[in-house]
Amino acid sequence: MTAITIRDVSESTLEALKIKAAKGGRSLQTYLLDLVTRDARTPSLADMMTRLDRETRSDVSTSDILAAIDEGRQRR
């Protein structure tokens, strides 16, 4: 595996990360590896929008929806 070095991390940031890792019962390295891995697996907003666009297509028009609403109201 490859090692990653992050430079110029402030002491306050490092301390906050150490605390979060400790609260989770993990080492700093394990905590950061989990964080980076989770981020790498999370799709970007653009990818999510593309997927939503692809999977949520509908042939129902606005007028069809409004007609169905009106029909439902008339049945009351």
Rank of each mutant, 00 (worst) to 15 (best):
R26N: 03
G24R: 03
V9K: 08
D64G: 04
M1A: 12
R38M: 08
R54M: 14
A68K: 06
G72H: 02
M48G: 06
R73L: 15
D34Q: 03
L66A: 12
A68Y: 06
R76C: 08
T5W: 02
A40Q: 05
T62I: 12
R51F: 06
V36M: 13
D64M: 08
E11V: 12
E71P: 07
V60T: 05
R76N: 09
S27K: 04
R26E: 04
A67T: 07
T62K: 11
D59F: 07
E11L: 12
L33V: 09
T13V: 14
E11I: 09
I19P: 10
L32I: 08
M49A: 06
A22I: 02
R38I: 07
A22F: 03
P43K: 00
D39N: 04
R26P: 01
I6T: 03
S10T: 08
L45Y: 01
S27Q: 02
L14E: 12
D34P: 00
G24P: 10
I4A: 13
Y31P: 11
R38A: 14
R41F: 05
T30Y: 03
D53R: 06
T50V: 11
D70E: 08
S61K: 01
R7C: 11
R76F: 09
A68C: 08
G25Q: 03
S63D: 15
D8I: 02
D59P: 14
T56F: 14
Q74G: 08
E11N: 10
Q29L: 12
S63H: 08
A46W: 00
D59M: 10
L14Y: 11
R26W: 01
E55A: 14
R73F: 13
K20R: 07
T30S: 10
T62D: 14
R38D: 12
Y31S: 09
M49F: 03
R57L: 03
K18A: 04
T5I: 11
E11A: 15
